[in-house]
């Protein structure tokens, strides 16, 4: 998109964002994900008819940051709540914003069935390989060998099992219209993530079924890393285990041009 910039403006804080500073730790890419969603909703002109569903986890306060209506779900139940909202107001835009503990552990039942039903909702799924809010415990997405406060010697797959690749798993469901994994570790990938978020919301608006964007994200504080090093960890350790890509691109979603 090319436009002339009045007043020399190239980029400013999106209107989809409220004035409230986020509670996220410095350098946490939750903020980037939030910003991209706010930008997309603003650019699509749908802030007025959007209802967000916040999870339990670090994003529990997500409702403070978007210029849309918001509700706050019990842990893991955001897809069910979003289903209730969307079914009675199908013309509204409904999205959940969930972390990996919320979505891939306690809420696995809700997310799988929302996808299987082809609910016309959009899910923003933050994969940062640990439970951030409670202080860095092992999550379903914690990498093998990765140290957390509840796997202090590193995740031992013999006793603690293997990470779950959510996008791959959900992509097998016929109800899923658009399921992709992106990363937030550098400007190029952030751009790709934004494009994916846009397509996901377009998928919903066109009634093409369930859409989910998994975003590999950092947790500098619980990973004991500087924010910049955390980005490197995502690139070097997480991307190989959670490959980026389009896992489900239905014929309808493939038609979406933005």
């Amino acid at each position: 998109m090319v436009t002339t910039a009045p007043n020399n403006l190239v980029y400013e804080r999106p209107e989809g964002f409220t004035d409230t500073p986020t509670h996220y730790c410095p350098g946490c890419t939750h903020g980037v994900a939030h910003r991209l969603v706010a930008e997309v909703l603003e650019e699509m002109g749908v802030l007025d008819k959007t209802i967000g569903v916040a999870p339990v986890g670090c994003a529990v306060f997500a409702y403070n940051y978007f210029e849309t209506d918001f509700v706050e779900a019990p842990h893991g139940r955001a897809p069910a709540m979003a289903t209730g909202i969307k079914r009675v107001m199908p013309e509204r835009v409904v999205f959940t914003y969930q972390g990996d503990g919320d979505l891939a552990s306690i809420g696995m039942g809700e997310i799988v069935h929302a996808a299987a039903r082809g609910e016309n909702i959009t899910v923003i799924f933050i994969n940062n390989a640990n439970y951030g809010m409670t202080g860095g415990q092992m999550a379903p997405t914690t990498l093998p060998g990765m140290k957390t406060t509840s796997s202090p010697n590193g995740r031992d797959v013999e006793t603690q099992g293997y990470p779950i690749r959510v996008s791959e798993m959900l992509s097998t469901l016929d109800g899923a219209g658009y399921v992709v994994r992106r990363s937030l570790h550098d400007p190029k990938n952030i751009r790709l993530a934004k494009k994916a978020i846009r397509i996901a919301f377009e998928t919903q608006i066109r009634g093409l079924g369930f859409s989910l964007v998994e975003l590999l994200s950092t947790c500098p504080v619980n990973w004991n890393m500087k924010p910049v090093d955390a980005l490197k960890f995502v690139e070097e350790k997480m991307v190989p285990y959670f490959p980026l890509g389009d896992y489900k691109l239905s014929a309808g979603a493939a038609q979406i041009k933005i």
Partner: peptide, 16 residues
């Protein structure tokens, strides 16, 4: 998919 799902769908629709 479960009573957990059902009551939270109720929760969402009630919010609407």
């Amino acid at each position: 998919e479960s009573e957990l799902g059902a009551i939270n769908m109720v929760y969402g629709a009630a919010c609407a």
